[in-house]
């Protein structure tokens, strides 16, 4: 169970987000239960109203963000979990580059989960801006993990630019629709055998994560599927098992799929069997 991200060997193939949990305590317990060794987080501009000093009656969200940051820090130090900052909310290469620079200073990591959104309706990445951002970030020493669509040519371009890790979506962020196009994902896997491929976005069920590993993907990154479960901690455990199961089944060698039925019980000399010729 080893996932290689830019030379770092991680003993889990699951990467997990820190958003949308009912409380910071449940977030922390869920991350631990998932056995993930990478947690994603983000940066947000301090709101002038919500960031007002305590006692003004206006503080709230910003304080919640600070609390989450403290929980994430404790996760990182106590459980050897690495931080993966994202560029959520960016729509241009310039915005993403600036946010990535700030993340590197704050979190002390060259890793960046690069998100450059091109469509607000389905949060689909903008491939043009994504490639442009990648080019600048790699030139500046970043180790980029781009979130992209399941487009073979785009993934190939990202790999050619120097992205050792590529993260195509399974389906749009937060939909939980699972792997909408296994054919595309399989093709990317076959054509980029040396890339570290991680499914990012759209995972809804543990079986989706298992399927991604069975297709040969190196890992899965998810958030909503755990955070929005009725019992996030138990769901996190389910995903830990699913990822391990998917990797085991992949390494064990799946049987070939067939178009016609084949009896598993030998028919010769079974009761009431009569040779017809």
């Amino acid at each position: 169970m080893s996932l290689n991200i830019y030379g770092s060997e991680l003993d889990s193939r699951l990467l997990i987000g820190s958003a949308l949990y009912p409380s910071p305590e449940i977030m922390k317990a869920s991350v631990i239960a998932s056995k993930a060794k990478v947690v994603t987080l983000s940066l947000k501009r301090q709101s002038p109203i919500l960031g007002s000093k305590q006692g003004s009656g206006l503080e709230n969200e910003q304080g919640g963000g600070q609390a989450i940051w403290q929980y994430i820090q404790s996760l990182a130090s106590e459980h050897e979990i690495k931080l993966l900052p994202n560029t959520a909310g960016c729509k241009t290469a310039d915005e993403a580059y600036t946010l990535a620079q700030m993340s590197r200073e704050l979190f002390g990591t060259p890793w960046v989960k690069l998100e450059v959104i091109g469509d607000d309706y389905n949060l689909q990445p903008d491939p043009i801006e994504l490639l442009d951002a990648c080019k600048h970030l790699i030139a500046d020493g970043f180790q980029v993990l781009p979130y992209c669509t399941d487009d073979l040519v785009l993934c190939q371009r990202l790999y050619d630019l120097g992205c050792q890790v590529i993260m195509p979506w399974a389906s749009p962020i937060g939909t939980g629709k699972g792997l909408l196009n296994p054919y595309n994902l399989t093709t990317i896997r076959e054509r980029l055998p040396k890339a570290t491929l991680i499914i990012d976005a759209g995972i809804g069920k543990p079986s989706d994560a298992c399927q991604a590993l069975e297709l040969g993907y190196d890992g899965v990154l998810l958030n909503s599927a755990v955070a929005l479960a009725s019992d996030p901690v138990t769901m996190a455990r389910a995903f830990a098992y699913a990822v391990e199961s998917g990797e085991l089944s992949r390494s064990a060698g799946l049987m070939p799929e067939r178009q016609t039925a084949q009896p598993s019980t030998p028919t010769l000399d079974t009761p009431f069997w009569h040779q017809t010729t």
């Binding site: 987000g17 958003a19 949308l20 987080l41 983000s42 301090q46 963000g65 979190f107």
Partner: peptide, 10 residues
Amino acid sequence: VDIFSPIQGG
């Protein structure tokens, strides 16, 4: 001037 601080993220 825009000031940014950490928040949870996916």
